[in-house]
Amino acid sequence: MQVLYFAWMRERIGVPKEKVVTSAATVAELVEELKARGERYAMAFADMASVRVAVDQELTELSASLKGVREVAFFPPMTGG
């Protein structure tokens, strides 16, 4: 699946998006896998209270299933308007 990062998540991880092969069943499991990739990821996901997630472009929760999902995005709380 495609994993996207925005704002300071993108800056901390160093790429806007990447292809990830995973057997994670939920977003939370995917986060654990990503955190294990190294310091930059661990830093980006250090404070999960400041991380929001969208699955296939819909806002959702960490408990969301990844079954059949093509795109997961991580980003800080939104500041539009």
């Binding site: 300071w8 806002l59 800080p76 939104m78 500041t79 539009g80 308007g81």
Partner: peptide, 24 residues
């Protein structure tokens, strides 16, 4: 809803990423 439910992020030239406000 645009303030906190539309995927936009503001970055100011001097001070960096704008934090989301509790009030929003």
């Amino acid at each position: 809803f645009l303030k906190s439910r539309a995927p936009f992020w503001k970055k100011e030239a001097g001070s960096g990423w704008v934090d989301a406000r509790e009030a929003d």
